[in-house]
């Protein structure tokens, strides 16, 4: 338990330090390979022909690059009985995600603004109720939601899925904006009130211009959640309105015909591209959203 760095001669400790440094980089590099391996395998497999997949090696680069699997995945692969590829489902996901993200972010911003700066009796209870709502396992609302969507006449439709995603996204968006707005000094809104500015005016001209970072966090969080959602998608859609995650699962697990692993991988990459793109472009905000949900502040 003694300190080797001081006990050993200087030169030896120097070699040791360099050695450790190398070891450190090797370990970090190995883990990088571990995280990259599935992506590498997905990409290379999607560029191989079925023939090459059957005879070749999982880890090998394609001998002959072909984009056939990508074309099939996009417009010809079969999800059950329909064979239109993932294209229609990709657009379904866009049609679901875009309005749901915008509506839940807007509502979350208004809620956060009220809870943080227009405190009234019960505002904290509202916030607590909302926060607990973030953590429920969605299985507990699946059955009644299926009935209510039917009752509202939007079961199995895209508006139905938008509705569901807005409702269950509200907790997080409210949390993001509330936690952001409490850091804005109350004097600012008080001074504006004294000057006669109203509720919406203060929101519009003081809070909104300051909100860009948290809007980005909220939009990215919601987009990732909704795009990657499977549970709501598979429970509340029907043939034709399924989001891409459901379509991908149907393609991969369809039992008819020859298993086309290259098409599966191409479809998986297509399904992953939008959120990966968001992550690469705005990773900082993505991480902020992730940690805001788990660490206070």
């Amino acid at each position: 338990m003694t300190d080797f760095a001081i006990d050993t001669p200087r030169s030896q400790s120097r070699t040791l330090r360099i050695g450790l440094r190398w070891l450190l980089y090797v370990i970090l590099g190995l883990f990088a390979l571990y995280y990259l391996l599935p992506l590498f395998v997905m990409i290379t497999t999607s560029l191989k022909s079925l023939e090459e997949i059957r005879t070749g090696d999982l880890m090998a680069l394609p001998r002959e690059v072909t984009f056939d699997a990508w074309r099939t995945a996009w417009s010809k692969a079969c999800t059950g009985i329909q064979c239109n590829g993932v294209k229609p489902y990709f657009w379904n996901s866009v049609l679901i995600a875009v309005p749901a993200v915008l509506i839940s972010t807007l509502l979350g911003a208004m809620n956060g603004y009220v809870v943080a700066h227009w405190k009234f009796k019960g505002a904290n209870i509202f916030f607590a109720l909302m926060l607990f709502g973030c953590f429920i396992p969605f299985q507990v609302v699946l059955l009644p939601m299926a009935r209510v969507l039917g009752f509202m006449g939007i079961a199995g439709t895209i508006p139905g899925l938008i509705f569901v995603h807005v409702i269950y996204g509200l907790g997080f968006t409210t949390l993001f904006f509330r936690n952001y707005y409490v850091t804005i000094p109350a004097e600012l809104s008080k001074a504006a009130k004294v000057d006669g500015a109203g509720f919406f005016r203060i929101f519009w001209s003081i809070f909104l211009p300051l909100s860009l970072p948290i809007i980005v966090v909220s939009v990215i969080w919601q987009f990732t959640q909704i795009w990657n959602d499977f549970l709501f998608g598979v429970s509340f859609s029907q043939s034709g309105t399924q989001p891409i995650t459901v379509a991908l699962n149907n393609i991969v697990n369809s039992t008819t015909g020859v298993k086309e692993y290259n098409v599966d991988m191409a479809a998986a990459i297509i399904a992953a591209l939008p959120t990966l793109l968001v992550y690469v472009v705005a990773g900082k905000y993505f991480i902020r959203g992730l940690t805001a949900g788990s660490v206070k502040g």
């Binding site: 599966d264 991988m265 399904a271 992550y279």
Partner: peptide, 22 residues
């Protein structure tokens, strides 16, 4: 950091598909 964290941006369905193949 970017490499270690990117799987978190993927759908579990994509993750499952990739590992099922591997």
């Amino acid at each position: 950091r970017t490499i270690y964290l990117y799987p978190m941006a993927l759908s579990m369905i994509v993750t499952g598909t990739a590992w099922k193949w591997i």
